[in-house]
Nucleic acid binder design. Structure first.
Lengths: 214, 214
DNA sequence: TAGTCATGTGACCTAGCAGTCATATTATAT
DNA sequence: ATATAATATGACTGCTAGGTCACATGACTA
């Protein structure tokens, strides 16, 4: 947790530091990210940073929580109540929102990917737990789908949940490929929401019905 | 490329250095991996390493090529001719071999994952090209599947190829989950080939037929 | 105005890194 | 045995990093 001093800062300064730190941790692994670079860019003294945060790990965890909250609130604001939709429509909305987050919050997205994939102060075990949390979330969805009679009760829920989490993890790069963008373009965030829908329709249809000839 | 001096080394010593370097680069990102640690473990002087390799990047690229070759030769030795099988059987064999590689060559596998996901001396662009190579490979398979009448000609090949590459990227962690293993267990490589088959059957069936009720 | 507490500062510390090089050792050839 | 070339060595350089601290500056109270 940051120290009180950090929260006493004028919002503008706080936000600047947060943004620059996020940029650094979005662009480099935990070990490679540099506090010295951050303070230099922010135009503040190294010592000041240690008035705000306990250290590198403290800053990292603060950003990690920020990213988690940002994603959660973005998703919940975009995705309707799961009870009001059939499973696959809900999945589509969910993944669209997820893709939207990647596009409209590229820094947060890139840092999130590094938490899962790159070096981080988290132990391998904790990292695995995060991935499992995603898989478990999808498992819950699928189980409810079965209970509501939308899915075959004999469906291998674990395998299907794995499939969904694998797709959602890589979805971002597929969308960027298909819209012919790279990470740089994300900043300008002039990607329209409508372009996402047909892509998600296609992907969800594949997950739903498979690749094989019907 | 390593220098001639490296290849003049007695095989035993060469292999030791290679193995220790691979362990280091499998356990840490490019920036965090340490030549000093490698030479210390190998019991040789720092200067010797620079008699063998031009520098850190040279060593890294050497290992990268080794991993690529190891994977390629492993896969081609296990997977039969694509013409002799229907598409989904071939996919199954391919992914089984891929999983087998992960299990029997864990160091090479882990380093490979870091090349794609972690920091590396490759530019973002080159990294993307590697991922694309995988997607393109699957695209080729799918197109041939269509030509042979195994797949619907209206299939969205790009999306399907993305699905396959997403699954194959994450397959390793799913298998480890399902067999209740972690990275450590891989070393002991007493995982039997037979255990893989039912898992792959399940996954391929999902890809083939989808999640939905039929 | 004097005093107190919160905040800001950057020189400084220790540690680890990649990479260098003069020198020592070993192997090979004559 | 001698000369020559190949290989091995580790102290050393230069750099960057995270983290510390005595001190400076500002703000608020009495």
């Amino acid at each position: 947790m940051p120290k009180q001093t950090f929260f006493n800062l004028p919002k503008q300064k706080r936000d600047l530091i947060t943004r620059l730190a996020l940029e650094e941790f979005a662009s480099h692994d935990y070990h490679s990210a540099s506090l010295s670079k951050i303070v230099e860019r922010a135009g503040i003294a190294k010592g000041s940073m240690y008035q705000y945060f306990g250290g590198k790990k403290d800053l990292y965890l603060y950003l990690f929580n920020l990213v988690g909250q940002a994603k959660l609130s973005y998703i919940t604001s975009k995705v309707p109540d799961p009870e009001s939709l059939d499973l696959f429509s809900y999945l589509k909305e969910l993944m669209m929102a997820s893709a939207g987050f990647e596009i409209h919050h590229p820094l947060e997205y890139r840092m999130g990917m590094r938490v899962v994939y790159g070096d981080s102060p988290f132990k391998e075990e904790e990292r695995q737990q995060m991935k499992n949390a995603v898989v478990d979330f999808y498992k819950g969805l699928l189980i409810r789908g079965i209970e509501r009679g939308e899915l075959d009760p004999d469906l291998d829920v674990d395998a299907a949940a794995f499939l969904l989490s694998a797709v959602s993890l890589e979805l971002g790069s597929f969308i960027m490929n298909r819209l012919d963008l790279d990470s740089e373009d994300l900043q300008s965030s002039k990607i329209d929401w409508e372009a996402l829908e047909p892509i998600l329709d296609t992907v969800i249809a594949l997950i739903k019905n498979g690749i094989a000839r019907r």
